[in-house]
Write a protein that binds this DNA or RNA. Structure first.
Lengths: 212, 212
DNA sequence: GAATATATGGCACGAACTGCCACATGGCAA
DNA sequence: TTGCCATGTGGCAGTTCGTGCCATATATTC
């Protein structure tokens, strides 16, 4: 709980600048669009030069997806807290619940993230970047299930299973988020409920629905 | 077999120009990189102006992923040929097999596509665009399972299941492609085999592997 | 062959980045 | 305080992708 006791002036300033850029950017994204807001405008709003903006964020997408990244980190941290003998999908499902529900019993902290979901989902120019983050996150999830297994020897079979679980998990979450964005509701609880439906039906899918 | 009997001079020319752009582009991507080859160079190679290039392809990604799109169309067509009462994942698995194996018994036509997979997979700048295509394709797959069900009324539950199956399927394929790209093999048959492993373990995943 | 439709090329322009260099600011020691 | 060094910042020129506009060339139709 008492982490950054000694934080130099420099670092404090950088953190404030970074946060300022994020805030200004998302405010502008909210007012206008992702596409129509220029980096120049963001930089101006945060009172830094364009050049400095690009020192804090490699590109415009990165500042837009900063909240998403935080969400991913939170889920990853929750996954690491799960017992080591849980099967992948079970662990991922539980970790997601931990990150979404238990970590924000009041629902406010969760809403802080879900508020960003719609603007991100609507910006079609961001879709590719979002998918990139998902893939990267899936790889990190998968790594949790294989590392330490047998001292570094490559295990294609285990790798496949781990990756598959991670990708399938994120696919389910993605489907849920999209359905939630498309629905009228903006209640985070509905998102969690939809996600659980998707996660659970991931396994029993085989002998259910038929084609039209 | 006898389709475009009457194709105007104009259309023939356009098709040739388009194909020429694709060929030149992929040759350049192969020699250099995706990132380092400029649109200007592609246009010059295809003997068109840059402006004309952008009339044929909305952006540089599109010409790079043209083969991938064709592959998607082929799989979608195969899916439509499946019996209507198959469960989604079963139908998708079978459609993929049809598209990959039966449609190219000699293995050559399949290789024609797999040859493009590695360059695409290596170009990190393309990753986002690839993911976009996958999502778009998943949506079209999902549509096959819901449309006509009950005359247009929105059925969130069915939609969820259909989307989920489509996304999970493509996640499995993706994992297989990535594993195949990372492996030494460049034999299309290995890719198909890996994909089948992934698809099959998609369902029985729950009670198998444990975490490290 | 004339009228019309469409494809093409060239140009100017905007926006995202990047490399380079000069300058300012914070940290640290004597 | 003074001075030195590391690092953060701004400005500018330049590259690349991508678009709108208009003039011109090529195909199609009558």
């Amino acid at each position: 709980m008492s982490e950054q006791q000694a934080e130099s002036l420099r670092e404090r300033k950088k953190r404030r600048t970074r946060q300022s850029i994020i805030d200004v950017a998302h405010a502008l994204f909210h007012d206008n669009d992702y596409d129509t807001t220029t980096v120049e405008a963001i930089a101006a709003g945060a009172e830094v030069s364009v050049r400095t903006f690009f020192r804090y964020f490699a590109n415009k997408e990165e500042v837009a997806l900063a909240p998403l990244d935080e969400m991913g980190e939170l889920t990853l941290a929750a996954l690491r807290r799960r017992p080591a003998d849980e099967p992948p999908l079970t662990a991922l499902r539980a970790a997601a619940l931990d990150a979404w529900t238990i970590m924000s019993p009041d629902g406010e902290s969760l809403r802080h993230y879900t508020d960003h979901l719609l603007p991100i989902g609507r910006a079609s120019a961001l879709a590719g970047a979002v998918q990139n983050r998902i893939v990267a996150l899936a790889d990190r999830f998968a790594l949790e299930f294989v590392e330490g297994d047998d001292a570094g020897s490559p295990q294609p079979r285990t790798d496949l299973h781990a990756s598959l679980a991670a990708f399938a998990f994120l696919a389910a979450v993605q489907v849920a988020v999209r359905a939630w964005c498309a629905s009228d509701s903006n209640d985070p609880a509905d998102l969690v409920a939809t996600a659980l439906i998707c996660l659970d039906s991931l396994v029993v899918e085989r002998n259910s629905a038929h084609r039209a």
